[in-house]
Design a protein around this nucleic acid. Structure first.
Lengths: 196, 196, 196, 196
DNA sequence: CATGAATGAGTGTTCATTCAT
DNA sequence: TATGAATGAACACTCATTCAT
């Protein structure tokens, strides 16, 4: 009987190592050797679980997205309308160390999306999921009159998504200037404006 | 009698080539050879004008920032208050090909800022300039009652900066979903909310 | 109660897979993994039947040689002299798909014989068998006056062997220039010349 | 003033090193590192003169072909008909150390031609040149009645080319069985037969 | 100043082989 | 026996950098 390994688990191990190496060394210095070492394997093992480096990097981003979505699902359970929307927006902001890590990971891939269709595809899919979720909740909130019906739901959605990524970026690159409290204030003001 | 060379002009030539190579090949595939070739020089020349690749890349970003600021200065001349603020925000959005290129260049460096203090420094300086400009105009607009005084100027400034970068990113990565008109609508709505 | 495995049969399975992989991918891209996969086994099994890759490749050549010799034995049964000699020469030319495959396999190993004594040994043994067979039949044919006695049997034998390999090579590398008919014509003319 | 290098000469240096490495280690163990080392350069230099390993190996074969053809041109000068034909055939046999090396090089590439269209192309071009040269001389010899007109020139040409490669291969793989004298005897007998 | 040849470390990837199960 | 996970060396190739000219 050969030693059997849970492929998905092994992939997760490696992808977790990818996150750590990107966080530590930067994505442009993230090599397969460094990933393997961080994961505790030799460089040759990765070939069993991934086709190539491209596959490793896009998979690492996808796994992060999956975890983020799983967290939504949990947090949004039992909520609806503006309440759920507020939860969703906050969940996508770097307001604790876990989400700050996620944001830095995300930012690391933005540049690559400009020249890699694979990465762009992964990001568009994720962006699309978030947009759909936000759009649905915006409509729900408008029906309940929790948000003003003056603005089209599409427009509000774009405004919120831009706010999320803009705040995430500023809080990531300029943490000394953008505190958690300031992020929250801006979000609350935005929601207040949208309610009128 | 040595050949006299305008150092600054030569540097600008090279840095312009950097922009084109990044745009064409992506920043992670931008090599010094490709830059030299694009600029029409041999690979070895760059050593006379830059200390190393790091210097070339950060200088290219700095030059872009200088050009953007020069454009503001021109556009903002004779304007003030909300009028100037609106002009400044629009000038920082990817609403024509020139600014779309600038945005893609900026996005290309965001990931590098996470692992390079040099790049981070350049971006913080630029960000700081923009923040100061926006903050000054916000205060002016509030004094003239063009913007509501309910919100602190600092908060409004952060909201606008997040909006700029968030919209820029979405318009860059998802141009099929974010048209120029939508960017304008979101900006106008934001200003309208801020005026109340 | 251990599972009993017919070693020779297993070896033949694997060696047949070697032929197919060499034919499909080229001998320099023939890997043990590809061989194992083609044979329907896992990569690690081969260790039970072969000492290493070198052993696998030389064994594959040897098995091909054994099959070719078995075919002679059958075809030459009941024949003798020039009749048998002609049969033997034709049997060593790539005149149908089976023998074209054998020729390509043989050609694949020629280069390796130059730097591998193992492969060289296998090929010398096979060459020696063919030479002895041809030499015997040449002598028989000369005794029966089916071939001229002017030339020494050794010389005729070398001429025929060179003809076989030379035609095989040309028909293999330049199939558009060397048809089956042309091979036959050249062989017949050679026999006719030898008969005089 | 930079150090200027004669590119063609450098290429020749490297390609000569390729021949020596193939001769010494075998073509399948011929690495770019070994080639560079043999040529006295570092591995990275080759990039200045060749696009990749494929280019290096095919160029090495092409250069050998060019040298062989240059030797013909010299040897055939002032000769014609059967005399020139005989000279040409002998020149293509491994009858001295130089030509034995050339033959081993040629044999080394035969297997690669089966799976590399580049190598096949180089060999077909060379083969085509030799065929044309032989065919022309055969026709000339037939016109002068130095060779019999019974056989078509095409057929005689194929017979001679097969003889050349067949003898070359046997003399290379089985030098203890095929002496220079035996090669010459077989060639002379073949010409004698063709003359009748 | 400028050239481009040259270096050598480092990249992603392949693969024969080993070995615990 | 048979598996397939794992290794580690080797591969071709890239590239920032150095340097004699």
């Amino acid at each position: 009987m050969p030693k059997l390994v849970d492929h998905d688990e092994r992939r997760s191990d490696v992808l977790g190592a990818v996150w750590r190496v990107i966080e530590r060394d930067g994505i442009e210095r993230t090599t397969v050797r460094a990933i393997a070492k961080e994961a505790g394997y030799s460089a040759g093992v990765l070939v069993h679980y991934f086709t190539d480096k491209r596959d490793i990097l896009t998979s690492a981003l996808e796994l992060s997205h999956r975890r983020i979505r799983a967290r939504w699902a949990e947090k949004l359970a039992g909520r609806s309308g503006l309440d759920a929307l507020r939860e969703l927006v906050y969940d996508n902001l770097p307001l604790d160390e876990e989400r700050r890590l996620e944001t830095r990971l995300e930012v690391s891939y933005w540049a690559r999306a400009l020249s890699s269709d694979d990465v762009l595809g992964v990001q568009r899919r994720e962006s699309s999921e978030l947009r759909d979720a936000i759009l649905g909740l915006v409509r729900e909130a408008q029906e309940r009159e929790e948000l003003s019906r003056c603005a089209p739901a599409q427009e509000i959605t774009l405004q919120l998504m831009a706010l999320i990524d803009g705040l995430s970026l500023h809080a990531t690159l300029h943490p000394h200037l953008v505190t958690d409290e300031e992020q929250i204030k801006v979000v609350e003001r935005t929601f207040a404006d949208m309610a009128r």
